[in-house]
């Protein structure tokens, strides 16, 4: 058993180094001025650490800071809404695909999965047309709807795999006791599938968090524009403010981290629950 422990600690150390070196570099850049970054040799630590980039993004009385604050709120709302709707629908769909027999089940399932093969660029213009026709351009509903349609296939597939691997015996016992399908789903399957559901939620949330092209086209002002679009707008026509954008990047990774901390109990117990306790 000793050897497995060594293996694990080497693994964990590697995960941390691999993940954190570029993240550290982002934080390091964000604490300098543009005049200090990209010096030679590199500044491994900020020579004169400054929070001015964060102040410019968050607290200053400028259009930039106002855009940042509004876009942070937008991205949180859009991602949470998309996650909730996606997880709800995919749980229903995955259960139906995994446990019920109906005509066209397989064809339908593969059709859902196959939509993942379409590159985003192909669907951008048609979706924009549909949204403009429905009057949903520059609305939360429009953006959330597009996210849900985009992430539902993957979410359904993850949960389908998960539910398929659950033992049928408990469900069968419940059905014999006269519980309806939905009751079985809610009281038996969902608790058992919690790790799968939580990881689906995290995955959906992070997919939504990274979106740029669709919200760029579907939002036209600060009422819906998410953080990713606002960060791209920090670039000038001929200049890229490295340290300012790095600070914005740190905010963009800090917010999901804070949400994860707040929901820590549910996420960790959900994701890492299971039989290996």
């Amino acid at each position: 058993m000793r050897r497995t422990h060594w293996g694990r600690w080497i693994g964990v150390a590697f995960i941390l180094l691999w993940t954190l070196i570029p993240i550290y570099w982002t934080i390091n850049t964000s604490l300098q001025t543009d005049a200090q970054v990209t010096s030679r040799p590199a500044n491994y630590l900020p020579p004169t650490p400054t929070l001015q980039n964060y102040a410019a993004l968050l607290t200053a009385d400028t259009d930039t800071a106002q855009a940042m604050r509004a876009s942070i709120m937008n991205i949180v709302i859009e991602c949470l809404a998309a996650t909730i709707v996606t997880v709800l629908l995919s749980t229903l769909a995955a259960y139906a695909f995994a446990r019920m027999r109906f005509r066209g089940r397989q064809v339908l399932f593969y059709a859902v999965l196959a939509t993942m093969a379409f590159p985003a660029y192909t669907t951008l213009i048609p979706i924009y047309k549909i949204m403009s026709w429905l009057g949903l351009v520059n609305t939360y509903t429009g953006i959330v709807l597009v996210y849900v349609s985009g992430f539902l296939p993957l979410a359904t597939w993850i949960l389908y795999n998960y539910m398929s691997s659950l033992p049928r015996s408990i469900e069968e016992a419940a059905t014999v006791d006269g519980a309806s399908r939905l009751k079985v789903l809610w009281h038996v399957v969902v608790p058992l599938a919690r790790p799968g559901i939580v990881s689906t939620a995290i995955i959906t949330f992070l997919f939504a968090w990274g979106q740029f092209l669709f919200p760029l086209v579907l939002s036209s002002d600060l009422s819906t524009e998410p953080l990713t679009v606002a960060i791209a707008a920090l670039q000038g026509r001929h200049t890229v403010p490295f340290s300012l954008m790095s600070a914005a990047g740190v905010l963009a990774i800090a917010i999901p981290a804070v949400i994860a901390l707040l929901l820590n109990r549910y996420i960790v117990s959900g994701l890492l629950a299971g039989s290996v306790k």
Binding site: L20, I23, G249, A252
Partner: peptide, 22 residues
């Protein structure tokens, strides 16, 4: 460790570009 692991995914593409260029 799980929370740290997912951080790269949350970094917007345009910032990721600046960092890896540097």
């Amino acid at each position: 460790v799980v929370a740290i692991l997912v951080l790269p995914w949350a970094l917007p593409g345009v910032v990721e570009g600046i960092i890896w260029v540097s």
